[in-house]
């Protein structure tokens, strides 16, 4: 388990201090695929680098499996880093080494014997599906293949945790999907806890079970992906998760706007037509969307109805009755 308690980080610059992280509290449990999403400059890369102390926090505590890693000496820090793999947006492979030698690199550092290294490299090449590229150099590989090598390298010392810093941001959509699938299977089959930093919603949607939204150096919202996605509370989360809602036309005072959230059973029921028939009100659908998160479907819909107290109470009563979550949009 990784716990961040009141973690802050600021950098001194010529034009004053820049705060990259401000009082971050986060708890990542074993087995999670934890997504951290934010716009560029929000501080997410600094945050992930605090977990393996590539960046040292200015304040706060970080506990990994119950131990405060900020108290570790060089030797223990080195051992800790072997237990936390990391992959990067730009892959960061050693260009002068073959694929096999790249994967063997962390094993050399960890002083594995030559036989152990060779055996482990073979296993890892098989795991990431690059057995035939063993002797190739990084310059001969595509982006997706490079990231596979980086994943194999990060997993070489059998870490319990894997940090992914924008790992799919420089890949095309198809390659992104295949890398995400690989990460998911690593999580499920090897039990590796994965922390994913991204600015792309679909990365969180397709593999994460929990998410934290970071904005202006602070975590503004966190929880299960299904919850946060169904009903984003913060402005930035809404911008990231429901970007289309912001494009809706401005509403006038004669109407009221509701956002309905469909999950579970209700997804298969004709809620809107029932609503129109039973309540006898004219309903205008402005927006509707459905997403699949962890193999469950979630729907969002924005409707407008006349701004009359009687109509509104009839509709909210009906929605309560059929157990559809709704939020009055302002």
């Amino acid at each position: 388990m990784i716990e961040l308690k009141h973690v802050s980080k600021s950098f001194p610059t010529k034009s004053g201090t820049v705060v990259a992280l401000n009082d971050i509290n986060l708890c990542i449990e074993d087995g999670d695929i934890y997504g951290i999403i934010g716009l560029s400059g929000a501080g997410k890369s600094t945050l992930v680098r605090c977990i393996n102390l590539l960046e040292k926090p200015s304040a706060g505590e970080i506990y990994i499996d119950g131990e405060n890693i900020l108290e570790f000496d060089a030797k223990r820090l080195s051992a800790l880093r072997r237990n936390i793999g990391m992959i990067f947006q730009s892959f960061n492979l050693l260009e002068q080494r073959t694929v096999a030698a790249n994967i063997a690199f962390p094993l050399e550092i960890a002083k594995y014997s030559k036989e152990e290294r060779e055996k482990r490299v073979k296993e890892l090449l098989k795991l990431v599906g690059l057995v035939d590229k063993e002797k190739a150099y990084p310059s001969q590989l595509s982006g997706g293949q490079k990231q596979r090598v980086a994943i194999a390298r990060a997993l070489a010392t059998r870490p319990k945790y894997l940090l992914c810093d924008e790992a799919t941001s420089s890949l095309d959509p198809n390659t992104t999907s295949s890398i995400l699938n690989l990460l998911k299977s690593i999580n499920q089959e090897l039990g590796v806890t994965i922390i994913v930093i991204t600015h792309e919603m679909r990365v969180i949607e397709s593999i994460c079970n929990k998410v934290a939204v970071i904005d202006h150096s602070q975590i503004v919202e966190s929880g299960l992906v299904s919850q946060v996605f169904a009903d984003p509370k913060s402005q930035i989360a809404r911008e990231l998760i429901l970007p289309d809602l912001l494009k809706l036309p401005a509403k006038d005072t004669t109407q009221v706007r509701f956002r309905l959230i469909f999950k579970g059973e209700v997804i298969n029921q004709p809620i809107i037509s029932d609503l129109a028939i039973k309540c006898q009100v004219p309903i205008n659908i402005l927006y509707a969307d459905a997403k699949s998160i962890e193999n469950k479907t979630y729907g969002q819909m924005v409707i407008t109805i006349p701004n009359e107290e009687e109509v509104v109470s009839k509709i909210t009563a009906y929605l309560d009755q059929v157990k559809v979550t709704y939020v009055k949009e302002v």
Partner: peptide, 26 residues
């Protein structure tokens, strides 16, 4: 590349190892 050095650090490489195995060989 600074990123490659960072990657080596993330694997727990000491500065000495980074000089020998990353800087000089890259």
């Amino acid at each position: 590349d600074k990123g490659v050095i960072e990657a080596a650090k993330s694997m727990g490489a000491s500065n000495w190892k980074i000089i020998c195995k990353v800087l000089l060989s890259e």
